[in-house]
Design a protein around this nucleic acid. Sequence first.
DNA 1: TGTACATCAGTGAACGCGCGTTCACTGATGTAC
DNA 2: TGTACATCAGTGAACGCGCGTTCACTGATGTAC
Lengths: 181, 181
Amino acid sequence: MKVTKEKAAENRELILKEAARLFRERGVAGVGVDALTEAAGMTHGSLYSQFGSKNGLVAEALTYGQARIAERAAGLKSLPEAAENYISAKHRDNPGEGCFMAAMAGEMRTQGPEVRRSFTEVAKSNLARLSALLMTGTKKQREDETLATMATMVGAIVLARAVDDPELSERILTASRAKVS
Amino acid sequence: MKVTKEKAAENRELILKEAARLFRERGVAGVGVDALTEAAGMTHGSLYSQFGSKNGLVAEALTYGQARIAERAAGLKSLPEAAENYISAKHRDNPGEGCFMAAMAGEMRTQGPEVRRSFTEVAKSNLARLSALLMTGTKKQREDETLATMATMVGAIVLARAVDDPELSERILTASRAKVS
DNA sequence: TGTACATCAGTGAACGCGCGTTCACTGATGTAC
DNA sequence: TGTACATCAGTGAACGCGCGTTCACTGATGTAC
């Protein structure tokens, strides 16, 4: 049945919010359309009304989630502070609330162009946001330093999440954090 | 029909070789059992004779492929040299012949214990091999420096492969390479 | 060395399952008069 | 304001498809005698 425009917009945002979390937690391939819409209290058909396809939802969820992250990170004062915050056990253990690059970069190679474009915008958004924390050097120098730090940040979380050995995982975080401070 | 022991061992190694390539190129979820055995010129049943399950093959292919990588990397002289070699367009563009950590770390969170254990051995093998290139400091200091460098290496390749923008991809490599030199 | 037979690597049909998507339908909403 | 009706967000059954795995079978290999 039809719902009010306001209710439809609420439903849309709820699906986006749950999708952004689930994709980071389980990967795009790891969440089906039923799980995505059920998490928002609806049936899979609503996904097609609102987003056209699963891929469409993936692309929009990346954009939506990245905007929430940018809001949340507004208080950061320096790149080392941001990096230390990022390379943490809390971030490692909560992918659903964390960085899209760390959670989903590995899956991008098998995604369609729409999703990859959206992911690239996420990366550019992070680059712009983090490089703005640097005060010295040209724009290119600041961005290059940020890109290298981003590589360490992403690599540290990706590796720390991947290994089965808790002690090794901790050492990856500690050693990487020391490097970016 | 039955084949000679020698032929069976050849077939087994051929499947392992193709699987190690295909899993890095397309991910575990991205290659089916038919594609895996077809690449070795056989049918899917042979996978179950030799490895018991797809997961069994994944775990063994990681071990097999990592041994090949260790052989190939025997000539490296220093950690910065290894890192510069690793953070390259050639490595980015040839995942099937490249590092398992960069190709498969992102998928490990959704894999079973057998596969994760095998992947962790890959990481430990890389850590041991690379930290042996360092000459100064205690064992722990050498390993910590290596772990941080590994994070940058893996993050650089993972991000450079994920983004859709060739120019950004190149900048990620160049900036990260400069950091580890 | 030659014969009889058990072994087992590899085949190919079949299975149940979950996937993303389609589609006819529902019925409250929102609009035209 | 009240009535008639078109709209369309969301439902739920159904689809085709590819997946990993099972299993009865094949027939050359390898062994026991």
